[in-house]
């Protein structure tokens, strides 16, 4: 039975719940989880309840990496570290925006912990505002499409590269749509000594506007169109990529999501979709996906 227990308040079809479940499936009981503020944190722990079957702590939105480093230091000082795995499970906003400094510090200090970014590409907990993980031209409540806007005008930040630049021994991308692969990577990350990182693509039905039954399907399309490249980096070098056989055009991914709907109705949308296709093409070349 999963260590993330049912009864939590995640939306039906929630990507964050899946990610949390897979992380615990990978790591087992001897794990301490640190969660920053965000959907997963809020919907799993409405006092006096908790969905977590392992020790879990939430402090603030922007400090999870620092909290985790303190947990690790304490276990060492108290002689209780042994094989206990310390893992942060944080949203893209907590990771790539407000918590970036604390993450940088913790990775530089080299604590033995694993940071999992559950990337649903916006601030979902506060109602789908853009983050630096929001992809180009997605419509969110703070980067809406409008008469003179195609939505979010900025490119997604390359967080795995930032972590790799800190000298992390293991950085990987994964997706909730590929459970065995994700579980394998999380396990590997936790087993490697030092600060490691897994960036998990997590399609959010509520925020991206598709039916909850399609969470996995949408996640697969992101990978199959090369918009979400799956790779592993060891000591800064890409050591493994998931190859694509019959790459799909990005339209197939975009058209199933309400957040990209305007690209198919607005004048000039076709041009804009080409720019998104160019991102996929760059991924293919950069990571050698084909």
């Amino acid at each position: 039975m999963s260590l993330l227990k049912p009864g939590h308040r995640g939306c039906a079809g929630c990507c964050d719940a899946l990610a949390g479940k897979f992380v615990l499936d990978a790591l087992g009981e001897d794990t301490i989880v640190v969660s920053p503020t965000g959907c997963l944190e809020v919907f799993t722990t409405p006092y006096p309840e908790s969905a977590w079957g392992v020790p879990w702590v939430h402090s603030l939105f922007e400090n999870a990496a620092a909290v985790a480093s303190g947990v690790e230091a304490a276990l060492k000082a108290l002689g209780r570290k042994n094989n206990t795995k310390i893992v942060v499970i944080g949203g893209d906003g907590a990771t790539m925006d407000i918590g970036l400094q604390a993450i940088s510090g913790a990775f530089e200090r080299g604590h033995d912990f694993t940071y999992i970014c559950v990337d649903n590409e916006a601030y979902m907990n506060t109602g789908i505002q853009r983050s630096s993980a929001t992809p180009l031209y997605a419509s969110t409540t703070t980067s809406p499409s409008g008469k003179v806007s195609f939505g979010n005008p900025l490119n997604k930040k390359n967080m795995p590269a930032i972590i790799a630049a800190h000298g992390s021994p293991y950085v990987a991308t994964a997706s909730v749509a590929y459970a065995p692969d994700m579980i394998k990577k999380v396990k590997k990350a936790a087993e490697i000594k030092g600060p490691t990182y897994v960036h998990v693509h997590a399609p959010c039905c509520t925020g991206w506007k598709f039916e909850g039954s399609k969470t996995i399907e949408v996640g697969r399309l992101a990978v199959e169109t090369a918009l979400w490249p799956m790779y592993e980096m060891e000591n800064g070098a890409v050591t493994n990529v998931r190859k694509l056989k019959n790459r799909k055009p990005v339209e197939e991914y975009l058209k199933v999501q309400g957040r990209f709907k305007h690209l198919f109705t607005m004048e000039g949308g076709a041009e804009v979709i080409k720019k998104i296709q160019a991102i996929a093409d760059w991924n293919v070349k950069h990571f050698g996906l084909e």
């Binding site: 227990k5 009864g7 308040r9 006092y47 006096p48 309840e49 908790s50 977590w52």
Partner: peptide, 17 residues
């Protein structure tokens, strides 16, 4: 209330979704 905002593991089971 248990101070420290501590809660018991898996207790969301009380909530039949």
């Amino acid at each position: 209330l248990i101070i420290k905002t501590v809660t018991k593991p898996g207790s969301t089971r009380a909530n039949k979704t």
